[in-house]
Design a protein around this nucleic acid. Sequence first.
RNA 1: GGUCCCGUAGCUCAGCUGGAUAGAGCAGCUGACUUCUAAUCAGCAGGCCGCAGGUUCGAAUCCUGCCGGGAUCGCCA
Length: 614
Amino acid sequence: MSIVQTLEQGVLDGIRDLYGKEVDAAQVTLSPTRKEFEGDYTVVVFPFTRLARKKPEEIGAELGQWLQDRLDTVTHFNVIKGFLNLSISDAYWRRFLEDVYRDESYGLQPARDERFMVEFSSPNTNKPLHLGHIRNILLGWSVSRLFEALGYEVVRVQIVNDRGIAICKSMLAWQKFGRGATPESAGIKGDHFVGRYYVLFEQKFREEYRAWQQSEAGQAVLRANRKEGQGEEDFFKAFKNTYFNEHSPLGAEARDMLLKWEAGEPDTVALWKQMNSWVYEGFDQTYDQLGVDFHKTYYESDTYLSGKDIVAEGLEREIFFRKDDGSVWVDLTDAKLDEKLLLRRDGTSVYMTQDLGTARMRYEDYGARRMVYVVGDEQNYHFQVLFEILKRLEEPYADGLHHLSYGMVDLPTGKMKSREGTVVDADDLIAEVIEEARKNSLERGTLADLSPEEQEAVVRKVGLAALKFFIVKVHPQKRMVFNPRESVDLQGQTGPYVQNAYVRIQSVLRKAGALNAEAATGYAQLLPDERDLIARLYAFPEVIAEAAAAYDPSEVANYCYDLAKAYHKFYHDHSILRAESEAAKAFRLQLSTAIARVLRNGMDLLGIDMPERM
RNA sequence: GGUCCCGUAGCUCAGCUGGAUAGAGCAGCUGACUUCUAAUCAGCAGGCCGCAGGUUCGAAUCCUGCCGGGAUCGCCA
């Protein structure tokens, strides 16, 4: 039984014994004692005043004495107002520390035979990854690591939107204007290369549209369709889609391309494969830079027709219904959701149809009864509906679905807008943070004796830590402001700050030589700072469990930061290698080793690597 | 307009299953490196926790209403 459980149980027993009353475990508030008071854990006794009919101070004193008398782990206590502060014995803490010291994988639960799927990233193939994807990827990766830490077998998947009109635009632009160029010939990363043609298409299309607006045909449409009081510019802005679909030669070509693709026309399919393969090469490089990978990639070109069988099945079971025009719907008004279209009247699927199909497909592939979708919060409603439908279909995994919804990433100047060119490119950003780390490292000169390759590895770890920590420390649900200047900061509440605590420990350990763990046993009287550090280590597994339960990596990030901060202070205030005794030195080395391990394991859950030096 | 999310220091964020005097970082000012990596530490200053009610021994935290910002609302994904 853990110390927290022991104390909780002790309080329940104590109340029963002292006052003859039963207390619900939920009424016991047990929290780490605040720094300014003496003690390790604090019980709030206010809730017991009513049933004991005594003053809080009195109850605190009686309960404290009761616990001290009966529990070996509680050595003394003090009562301030309604707060009972309990002190845990040094022996207990020392034993616990030894356990952590010996356990390489402290905090990680043993494997259990249960699969857990996490879907994240899920890019389109018409443009490179950007800052928004980075938040998505980091969240998805961390959550998958969190559940691995709980012992699940996690399957990481992405679903790539590789089809549709967007990629056809790129294909068409390349065909018309590319002159056979390749990423190699152009010296550009594949995803950026293809992205350029998408942009080029949009540019050519805009030119075409503008010319049309001035033409007789365009002006005639304007005269016939403009609304009362609508300016010419406003009209054409609103008319853009219609123009693309009904008037534009380029639009016609792009749609024609899509039809050919759907018909499986060999040349079109070959071109499509070629361009997408360029994109995937580019994505893989970016994923590699970020240190993430997937077990399985699903392609929409394989899945976009799926789900129709589920719709038919739902119709038969009268979970769905058909309207007079032939379209198929589900009525979720009794779950405070709307009616939702599942199949168009021409029998073609919509996004929801496809998602139903892929959900079942993935269950058939992996049998995961729990599944997390990491998708931006603009799709909250979509997932509410999707999950509700799957429940009504009584899919076996329906109760294990979760939409990890996250807020948009804004810039200090406002929203990212592709049209205004303010989108922060993922590759550029990664290069930038690494460059910043490199500059700082050179100034310090601490890596001078390492080989260029080793230096580079450190600089990469530091730069990426800055970027990743900056993003992952924020609660997913919140919109966040990404300040590029602050994201490359290496000081303060940052990834490198946490790394630095680890590096300091490694440096001390290198100088210490072989550790005589036996000697630590002689260190009887722990300092308050040492007790505080051990108690923090003690909380680690619980932090992981809570972060996983809340699908919230930021809890781990904040924990790591707090631990690193506490250690930095300890390091500053107390000498380790020149401790007052051999026992103290051995103990502090042991403590430092354990802290380094938890920092490394914790940051690993966030996808952040620790350098040995920096 | 309906529904959902957010609102804490100048800025970026913790704290939210109710508990002690609301915490960090950045920015500003002051100090600490011949001593284990100063990417560090210590200090100063900075707050009607959006507003107003309610519940409670106790509210940043729970409930209601309002204000401000954002997302979304049947054939885009």
